[in-house]
Amino acid sequence: MPSAEAEISSFLKARRAALDPDALGLPGGLHRRRVRGLRREEVAQLAGISVDYYTRIEQGRAPAISDGVLDALAGALRLTGGEATYLRNIASHGRRTPDTRGPDDPGRTVRPEVRQLLHAMDGAVPAMIFGRGLDVLAWNALGGRIGFDLDAIAPDRRNSALLVFLDPAARTLHPDWERVAEQAVGALRAESGRYPDDPRIRAVVGELLDRSTEFRTAWEAQAVSECRYGVKRIVHPQVGALDITFESLRLAAEDDQLLVTYSAQEGSLTETRLRELARRVAVERVPAA
């Protein structure tokens, strides 16, 4: 992954290039501009800072940027909440203690009480725990079969982004694959900003940049997003199409872990199919006599 300075430069350039000067009431339309989007001096004017200072920020040559300036840049560039948080995170890299966590670090361990909760929801509510970098750390029996068969996947491959981009089954499983892929990239970039030195995140991003042209193109667009709730369409190989509602809840004691639950609208075909999937999973888990 690039250095913090390179991340700041790439992100700010991408965000100012994405803005429409006409929509912001700025003079000189596209036909008078050499590049799309805002010029550096326009961003500086909107943020209320000097052009020289903005240039140094965009080039990664401005240490210890104040929160006030970051907020002004977020407003000038019309950043979303997630994008503003990402900017703040990457701008503070130099003030952070390097993260040397390994794969066996306690942050990747799911507490027994949380596993108990997963088990209590089994048979009715598919659920799983996500850790840093979109790794799937734990799941109940139904959650492990709502999409990919997690029990059949090697531990180091149980990662949403790796599965979406590198597993051929993903495009059949997700009929709206492009949207799912876009969400995975946005969430992974948000994670990389939150935990810039995490070795697992760096390894996942590095592998995807090497192996997936589609990921590389999306990653270079610098999009940041975190979709914590919504509806996901899955074509399950056993029970057919599912329109699943998902909710993501951050665990209180482990702020880098998310509990994600899935449910169906009452009386819907998806609810019937989820019950059928739960029945099948229960039958498969009964020990042979």
Rank of each mutant, 00 (worst) to 15 (best):
L46D: 02
S248E: 03
G29N: 11
T55K: 07
V69K: 01
E113R: 15
V224Q: 06
S50M: 13
S263F: 09
R280A: 11
L19F: 02
T109W: 01
T172G: 14
S248Y: 02
A253W: 05
E83P: 04
N89S: 14
R34D: 13
A74W: 01
G131Q: 07
S10P: 00
L242D: 07
G81E: 12
V125W: 08
D255C: 04
R16S: 02
R211M: 00
M121Q: 11
G75C: 09
S263E: 02
Q59C: 12
H119K: 14
L79Q: 07
E178C: 02
H236N: 09
T97R: 14
P175A: 03
G186F: 02
A141E: 04
V43R: 11
R95G: 09
R158K: 13
L77Q: 07
D176M: 06
R280M: 15
E191T: 08
I146A: 10
P63Q: 07
L19H: 10
F246D: 02
A241L: 07
E271S: 12
P27H: 01
L242E: 04
H31M: 13
F130C: 05
P155S: 14
G75A: 08
E41T: 06
E254Q: 14
G107T: 09
A152M: 04
P2K: 06
L209M: 13
E220S: 14
L19N: 13
I49K: 01
V164L: 15
E284A: 15
T270P: 05
L46Q: 05
S263W: 03
A203D: 14
P237L: 08
D104M: 06
G193R: 01
S10L: 10
I234N: 03
E271L: 07
R115N: 12
A64S: 14
A120M: 11
E7Y: 03
A23W: 00
A184W: 04
L150H: 06
D197A: 07
R36H: 11
S92V: 05
R108G: 15
L24R: 08
A278Y: 05
I201G: 06
M128P: 01
L274W: 09
R233T: 15
A253P: 00
V231D: 00
V114F: 02
M121Y: 08
A169R: 14
G144I: 12
A23D: 15
L277M: 12
S160H: 11
R211A: 07
R200L: 12
E191K: 00
A6N: 10
A252W: 00
H119M: 10
L79Y: 01
S248M: 05
R202W: 05
R36Q: 11
R78A: 10
E247I: 08
A84K: 03
V286W: 09
